[in-house]
Amino acid sequence: MNGFDIGASWAEEYLGNNGIGTALVEERPILVYGNEHYATAYHNVACLGVPIKNQNGKVVGALDVSVPVKYTHPRRITMALTAVNAIENELSLQERIESMEKIVATNIHDLRNPLTIIQSLTKLGSMKTKSEEQNRYFKRIIKQIDILSNMLNNILAIHKPEKYTLISIEQAMQEIIKEIKPLCKARGINFEFFNRNQVMLMLRRKIFKRAIHNLLINAINAMDDEGEIMIQTSQIEDKLRIEISDTGPGIPPEIEDNIFQPFVKQGEEGTGLGLYMVYQTIVEVHQGEIWFETKAGVGTTFYIELPTVKEDSDNSERKLH
């Protein structure tokens, strides 16, 4: 099997005498047998070319199966057609997922507009009322709106398309730290960041920032008005490891195995989507890894590993490990 050829370009004289070339042009399966080949070197080979189409029927590539004539068997043709069918199904599924993501992102964006209006009017009502009971109700409404808004932002962060940007880990983390430090200071939490690495990463900056932000907010909320949060980085071969540690109560054993699943939360507060969004961002979006260690009464450490980008000194091309 010669593989999956996308955008293959063939000399004109080969079209009609070559399985994969003819399959691309005529957009149908073609079997070129022995002496039918243009090149005499292939007269002892049978080649089956099968076009691969997306859900709109457009040819996006082809599969070529070549075997010696004496081993030609209908079963090999069936296997090739089955393989192409599987590839086309996967392409169709991916296209549907991308289409659905665009719809989700658009609808969430539209939902946030009336939510902002409701929030503003509720805050205005809270400021104008003289009733303590009404004010309590207004505050509860505002709190629930904040939870819903945060939930929508998490979903939007996962599904909204964003280009990858080449950025140093120092710059990426400093953007997050300058927002987190004041929160820690207000709660009496000691915050430390240690980084001696100047490695470059390919990140979707907004969603990566939100993922790390979620981890840090969880750590802050897990502690009383004291404690410590520490972030440190280290380079392990061609990956960068980020460790985020806190001195909180630890993750309850009953949710440890499902902590990255949607709607799993540690307490009554929150949406249960924060760590799910973190996992999707690190693993699915950035091809990284994430895991944690936790101990009751001692704290929790989340470990993140991301592929680094190396600059080739010979041709200045940046390559993702």
Rank of each mutant, 00 (worst) to 15 (best):
I177D: 05
T294P: 05
I20Y: 00
I207Y: 01
T308V: 15
I242W: 01
I259M: 05
V199M: 04
R76M: 13
Q134M: 14
R136F: 07
I97D: 08
L275I: 07
T294S: 15
L81E: 13
Y164D: 11
I236Q: 13
E101L: 10
E26Y: 04
T22V: 01
V283Q: 06
P114M: 10
M151W: 08
K295E: 15
I169L: 04
Q198F: 09
L31T: 06
G7R: 09
G297D: 06
G19I: 01
F263S: 07
L15G: 02
S234D: 12
P29S: 07
V59N: 03
A296R: 13
I6M: 11
I177Q: 05
I97S: 07
H321K: 14
V264S: 05
S126W: 05
N214F: 09
A219R: 00
H73P: 03
N197F: 02
L111I: 05
L91E: 03
T281D: 04
A23T: 02
F191N: 04
L275M: 11
N54T: 05
V104T: 08
A11C: 08
I118G: 01
A8S: 14
I77W: 03
V309R: 01
M79P: 00
L320M: 15
A157Y: 01
A8T: 06
P253L: 07
K178R: 15
G19L: 01
T247E: 01
D110L: 15
W10D: 04
E228A: 05
I155S: 03
K128M: 13
Y38M: 09
P68F: 09
R96C: 09
K160C: 05
I189H: 00
G272H: 05
A11N: 12
P114L: 08
T72F: 14
E175G: 10
F208G: 01
F193M: 11
P74K: 05
F138V: 03
I255T: 08
Y137D: 10
I304K: 03
L81T: 07
Q171L: 11
P51F: 01
T82F: 08
E311P: 04
Q134D: 14
D225N: 15
N85H: 12
N56T: 09
E228S: 08
E90A: 15
E132K: 14
L121S: 10
T116C: 08
V59K: 03
G61L: 03
F263R: 14
E27K: 15
D238W: 04
Q174F: 09
T22P: 00
S131L: 09
K319N: 13
N195L: 06
F208Q: 02
S168N: 06
N214K: 07
Q119Y: 11
I155D: 00
I231A: 02
N113Y: 12
E226D: 12
S313M: 12
I220H: 03
K206A: 11
E27A: 13
R187V: 02
P29Y: 03
Q280K: 15
I176M: 04
K295D: 09
L183N: 02
I282C: 02
N113L: 14
R28Q: 14
I236W: 06
G274P: 02
R76N: 10
E170C: 04
T294G: 08
A86V: 10
G7P: 06
H213S: 13
A86I: 11
H286T: 07
N35H: 11
